[in-house]
Design a protein around this nucleic acid. Structure first.
Lengths: 147, 147
DNA sequence: TTTTCATGTAACAATAATAGTTACGAATCG
DNA sequence: CGATTCGTAACTATTATTGTTACATGAAAA
């Protein structure tokens, strides 16, 4: 199975938007992400419904933020994407009849639940402004190295 | 994509084995797991190579433990299965050229790495004996409820 | 020794999720 | 009106997991 890269992809797109003033079209972003404009629209649709970004049609249209970067957490993004499944590993049966299997599912399920809670807390505590700042530091360091 | 249920499945199988004295055949286990004997052999093969279980052919053959349950951690099992990929979410590109994408990958990647480390620590601290004890408590409670 | 039982393994099919593509409709701006 | 851009449905491609068939190998029982 392919891994779900929508969270990374949409963050990548949003960071490019953050570096610009004018709205970016789906084609612009598709070029940045090395993918297709329809994939961009499909992914961004959830963010629009969540009030994170807005889209405009026609000339001068495209995607732009609906609120400040510091007011958008990675958890907001994750939720807007439909809370994609975090773990690739999981139980064989959701509601097993076998009591042995129930016991195994409980132990593994709790471990996964705790790990997921930790991840979500981390997402909740990171904003797009943090991400943008992290990028600017890295970009500066990169320029210093090559210059 | 289907989720990888090998860890849960093999733990389910091992718990059934733990409840028995004699070796269990792949067909026995396949019946317990509601799957195919070949799937059982394929999955158990890694555990055999890791010295966790042993298999015997012919009459009286089948699967049995190679060492005490208390000496086998869930991490041992996880490793024996070939360390299956934990997360379904992940980066779009492993080694991106775009510095923006690199920055996003770093932030998300570290969050996932920490969550995975926490999960592995939990697996390392749980043995099959713990799992079996957990099951016996649950089974006892179940009998008390219904009786 | 022959038969039966059981694992070992390769090869292929079935299932399911993600991502990419094509096509066309709808809205907006000049 | 016409160019641009989003919105969306439908289909294809790719890939991982799981299930199935077939046959070889080894070990114990008859």
């Amino acid at each position: 199975m392919k891994r779900n890269s929508r969270l990374s992809a949409v963050l990548h797109a949003l960071m490019h938007m953050a570096e610009r003033e004018a709205p970016m079209t789906s084609d612009d972003l598709a070029l940045c992400l090395d993918t297709n404009a329809v994939v961009v629209r499909r992914t961004m649709a959830g963010l629009r419904e969540a009030g994170i970004v807005q889209s405009g049609r026609g000339h001068g249209g495209g995607w732009h933020f609906a609120r400040p970067l510091a007011d958008i957490s990675l958890l907001d993004i994750y939720n807007a994407l439909g809370e994609p499944i975090v773990f690739q590993i999981g139980p064989a049966t959701e509601m097993p009849g076998c009591v042995v299997e129930q016991s195994v599912n409980r132990v593994i399920g709790e471990a996964l639940k705790d790990a997921e809670a930790m991840l979500m807390a981390r997402f909740a505590g990171t904003t797009l402004a943090d991400l943008a700042a992290d990028f600017r530091v890295a970009a500066k360091r990169c320029r210093a190295d090559t210059g």
